[in-house]
Design a protein around this nucleic acid. Structure first.
Lengths: 218, 218
DNA sequence: ACAAGTATGTTGTATTTACAACGAAAGGAG
DNA sequence: CTCCTTTCGTTGTAAATACAACATACTTGT
């Protein structure tokens, strides 16, 4: 159980509380811990969930069967990661499967308890609400930024949109990105070699300069 | 001011309260109303905002200058629409310009007041917090679904992904979509005629059937 | 320093798409 | 019904992209 508290204290929603505060808070939230074996299905596509999940140990996959029947892994979560916050919040059925990819422990919290400050009106509980809103809002913005990029028709426009955004975010024409070429290509949803080729053209045209993951807009 | 209360009572966040409750609530939130002339800039790109905006009258554009200097209108809002909820919530600088497209009245609410239940701990205020979370969470899910679609490489895969999602959402192989062809093409970010052509192929191949905005997956 | 492995750039080809232009069908107004 | 407008489907062409295959760095471990 020591492990449990230690992990929880590193979860984004629960950071920066003292151990005492955290214990009180978690008691207030009536956390339930469940164990899963590798391959166990935690949530099914179509389920309506009203809990927030937190990975304590092991790992879980968010996956989805596409039209052709391929199981596509959308994300892999490990200790300290949160899942279900959007679906529990919206009460919409989930379009994905949540599956343990190894023996795992997962903590579940009733979402209502998270977002409704308890009768004791504890300050820390209010803090959780604020953080949950910040978490959802920030995710929102990142998703919107990505949609902006994916809505561009050509690779060149995607690149320029992405780099312009990064430049604004960094308040500078020079910045490094957190991607290698393959990851950048995945993010922009284009072919890696096509991305390399297009970057070369842009450099040749004197529009940008770059070396590896360091970029400069001219 | 009658108008003001009437509009507010139809805003998603403030629906289903009695006039009395709403008055109390809005007083609690210390709403400020500002007037803008056509063309006035309400928020600049890069601003960090801490208010929630609600259009009372007139209309505003969310727009963005792309790399080439074109002013792209991302959305047009009118009475009862909310804006800024994600940016105020995340405290990230906004990547867009918010501009009045006609003479407008906009109500602003301090975001902290919205998401922190007041000292009076009024029940209605808690309701607002819950609704704000639901609003952000739902938006999140819709954005994620769209990204899933835009992440498909080919028009065919985008179509099948979209239709499969809609089928799941409706719990049926037969459903109508809220788009005409042009709107559907815009949503999937493909050319309209290319979309029509691809739909024809899918119909010919016996994979789907459709008439206008009625679709059937076979 | 060397070898093996990884990341990136380059090029040619087949596929896919955007774009433009047009015709057919559907819906509305008079 | 007829004209007019809008929506939708079709086709040809030019452009863009994916894909594969290979060349050239750069890294890492020994």
């Amino acid at each position: 159980m020591e492990d449990y508290l230690k992990i929880m204290s590193q979860v984004s929603l629960f950071q920066d509380f003292s151990i005492n505060e955290l214990s009180g808070l978690l008691g207030c939230l009536q956390v339930v811990i469940k164990e899963y074996k590798k391959g166990d299905v935690i949530f099914r596509q179509g389920d309506v969930i009203n809990v927030l999940g937190i990975v304590i140990s092991g790992g879980i996959n968010l996956q989805k069967c596409d039209y052709y029947g391929n199981n596509v892994i959308l994300a892999t979560l490990s200790a300290k990661d949160i899942f279900g916050e959007s679906y529990a919040g919206s009460q919409m059925p989930i379009p994905i499967e949540v599956v343990a990819n190894s023996n795992s422990q997962v903590a579940f919290v009733d979402y209502d308890k998270v977002i409704h400050p308890c009768s004791k009106m504890c300050y820390n509980h209010n803090m959780i609400v604020t953080r949950m809103i910040k978490l959802l809002a920030t995710k929102n913005i990142l998703l919107t930024a990505k949609i902006d990029i994916l809505s561009k028709r050509t690779t060149k426009d995607k690149i320029l949109d992405y780099l312009t955004n990064e430049s604004l975010r960094n308040n500078s024409n020079e910045f490094t990105i957190p991607f290698n070429r393959q990851a950048m290509a995945d993010y922009l949803v284009v072919d890696r070699s096509a991305l390399s080729a297009e970057l070369s053209k842009l450099k040749l045209a004197g529009i940008i300069d770059y070396d590896r993951n360091f970029f400069k807009i001219l």
